[in-house]
């Protein structure tokens, strides 16, 4: 009987797990300072499906960048340490494997674009040299094939005149072009997962639009999954299929993008959406979230958002709300949803 239900009812709330590329489960990354333990990432869970664009949204200090660095196992040491959780890349736990094995994943099957293209490129090597590094290291190409692949990568990110540009140095590139070079470096190995950590923050508006549409095109062409780390709700709405809203080191709400924008569950998500001015929508006064994001060394008890929450109840101050499931992968941590 039980076997039968298992096969006949492919539990509707468990969409084929086979298309899950990355599953982060209870990830904890703490900073150990002389005076305190700062829980920068405190039990973060979310999934990224194949070909999906997932947003990690939050303010500074919410732990979004640390989450990404933890996935890549690049947390700054000494100081920070991954103290718990699992990160499954398909059927391998990235946190449990050896450095040696990790090299088959980091830079090869998953790549990261950092916020500042100025500092992620080496000023004394030509762009060609730097783009060729992953090609030599991961794809083990040698000789003329390397240059051919470099050209291909630069063309893929739509850098004009690649044959001229390969011999140039980063300072000869504009900010937008530099960020494309960084993207080219990340994408040469055709990774299955691309983590873009605020890749457009340092770019101008029209250049940002170019870069965002470039990444979207590449994603469509190659079926890469993308994690967009950003605080820009516009980028989230335009780029992501699914959104994870982070606050004080935790994912407080995870939902499909339209649901986040049309029917946000968590009061923080709601407040965040109401506090940004929207083009063409007249708001006399912006909704303001009073107070500030909490400092990690002085986290309030219970739900860390309660001091700023318009719906705070007594229980919010005492206990962190459990996960309330709201669909296939969707969930929210809020006592309001619990009721």
């Amino acid at each position: 009987m039980s076997a039968r239900t298992d096969t006949v009812l492919p539990t509707p709330d468990k969409k084929a797990d086979a298309d899950i590329l990355l599953r982060v489960e209870g990830l904890k990354t703490y900073f150990f300072t002389r005076n305190a333990v700062l829980k920068a990432v405190d039990g973060v869970s979310f999934t990224v499906r194949k070909g999906e664009a997932v947003g990690l949204v939050g303010e500074s200090g919410s732990g979004k960048s640390m989450t990404c660095l933890s996935i890549m196992r690049l947390v700054p040491t000494p100081g920070a340490r991954i103290v718990g959780g699992e990160v499954w890349f398909e059927d391998a736990d990235l946190l449990a494997m050896s450095e040696q094995d990790l090299r088959g994943y980091r830079g090869r099957r998953m790549a990261m674009i950092m916020q500042d293209p100025q500092t992620s490129l080496n000023p004394v090597y030509t762009v060609g040299d730097q783009v060729s590094e992953p090609i030599r290291l991961h794809l083990k190409e040698r000789g003329e094939r390397v240059m051919a692949k470099v050209m291909e990568a630069l063309r893929a990110v739509r850098i004009p005149q690649p044959e001229v540009r390969v011999t140039q140095y980063p300072h000869q590139f504009s900010g937008g072009m530099r960020q494309r070079v960084v993207a080219a470096m990340g994408l040469t190995t055709h990774p299955e997962l691309l983590i873009a950590d605020e890749p457009t923050t340092s770019l101008d508006v029209t250049i940002q639009a170019q870069f965002v549409s470039l990444i979207k095109d590449l994603q469509r062409e190659s079926g890469t999954s993308v994690i967009w780390v950003t605080h820009d709700l516009g980028i989230v709405a335009q780029c992501c299929d699914r959104v994870n809203v982070m606050y004080a080191g935790r994912v407080v709400e995870s939902a499909e993008v339209r649901k986040i924008f049309k029917a946000p569950q968590h009061p923080y998500t709601k407040a965040l959406l109401d506090s940004v001015p929207v083009k063409g929508k007249k708001k006399k006064r912006l909704y303001q979230i009073d107070g500030q994001p909490p400092a990690l060394d002085r986290l309030p008890s219970g739900c860390p958002f309660w001091p700023r929450c318009p719906h705070a109840m007594d229980i919010c101050k005492e206990q962190y709300p459990p996960k309330t499931s709201a669909g296939v992968d969707d969930f929210v941590h809020c006592w309001l949803a619990e009721k």
Partner: peptide, 21 residues
């Protein structure tokens, strides 16, 4: 104006203009 991504998934993707400043 067209380049600003709108915080609404139902609105079309920000339009791009080629070239650099």
């Amino acid at each position: 104006l067209a380049a600003v991504p709108q915080p609404d998934p139902d609105l079309p993707m920000a339009a791009t203009v080629a070239g650099e400043v």
